[in-house]
């Protein structure tokens, strides 16, 4: 019995060694718990959090530039926005992609919830959904009702 068990183990061993190559996903670096906790703290640290390439003043990529411009157009107050430059932190750059399960930068969070990347942000800006979202999350005030139309004399 023992001999049989040992034989089958040794038969399996090469297959086990081959696994990482056959399934490269196993070899992919996983986000450490510490890194995950740090990112979690970052995404919930401000009402609006943007992970971008460059800084709000000097974006290093057109998509990040577009994202920050949309937030400015929406009137997001600077004190409610935190922007993280992923180009300054290689671990954050790869970590945030895994954390959000999102392959590209920029990435926007509102009150700790992932909203999307540049395409989604622009689309929501154009459709008015972004304004609704920011109002609902009390990032920007609800727009005052327009002045009543002038009455005909």
């Amino acid at each position: 019995m023992l001999g049989l068990a040992r034989t089958s183990l040794s038969t399996f061993a090469p297959a086990l060694r081959l696994r990482p190559a056959a399934f490269p996903i196993i070899a992919r670096r996983l986000l450490t718990q510490e890194a995950r906790a740090q990112i979690q703290k970052a995404v919930s640290g401000s009402p609006v959090v943007l992970f971008m390439k460059g800084t709000p003043d000097t974006p290093q990529c057109g998509f990040s530039r577009a994202a920050i411009q949309v937030l400015e157009l929406q009137g997001v107050p600077p004190e409610k926005l935190s922007a993280y430059n992923v180009l300054e932190d290689a671990e954050l750059r790869s970590g945030i992609k895994e954390f959000s399960d999102w392959p590209t930068i920029p990435q926007l969070y509102v009150n700790g919830e992932f909203v999307g990347g540049c395409d989604i942000l622009l689309g929501m800006h154009q459709s008015g959904e972004l304004e609704d979202l920011l109002v609902k999350n009390e990032v920007i005030p609800k727009e005052l009702p327009a002045d009543p139309a002038p009455q005909a004399a």
Binding site: D101, W102, P103, F114, V115, G116, G117, D119, I120, G123, M124
Partner: peptide
């Protein structure tokens, strides 16, 4: 939702 669609394609 748009987010779900984009996640799907990604």
């Amino acid at each position: 939702s748009t987010l779900a669609r984009h996640r799907w394609i990604n």
